[in-house]
Amino acid sequence: MKIRIDKSACVGNARCWAISDELFPLDEDGYIDIEEFEVPAGKEDLARRGARACPERVITVIEN
């Protein structure tokens, strides 16, 4: 499973980070600091929840 984030469209709600600060790191300003990553085994549900929590809808889950 992969997560892809439209980083330029992030407005800093940080709701993904509130679900998992490990999967969704923030930069100094509190905006998302990662564009794409493979979801580690066992973290799929957390990744999906993080994506759903984004009010701006800029996080896409790509299921394998």
């Binding site: 800093g12 709600n13 701006e56 809808r57």
Partner: peptide
């Protein structure tokens, strides 16, 4: 309930 609200607005003026 899951999913996001926009109580703090959306877009650049969040």
């Amino acid at each position: 309930r899951e999913g996001a609200h926009i109580a703090f607005n959306a877009g650049p003026h969040r």
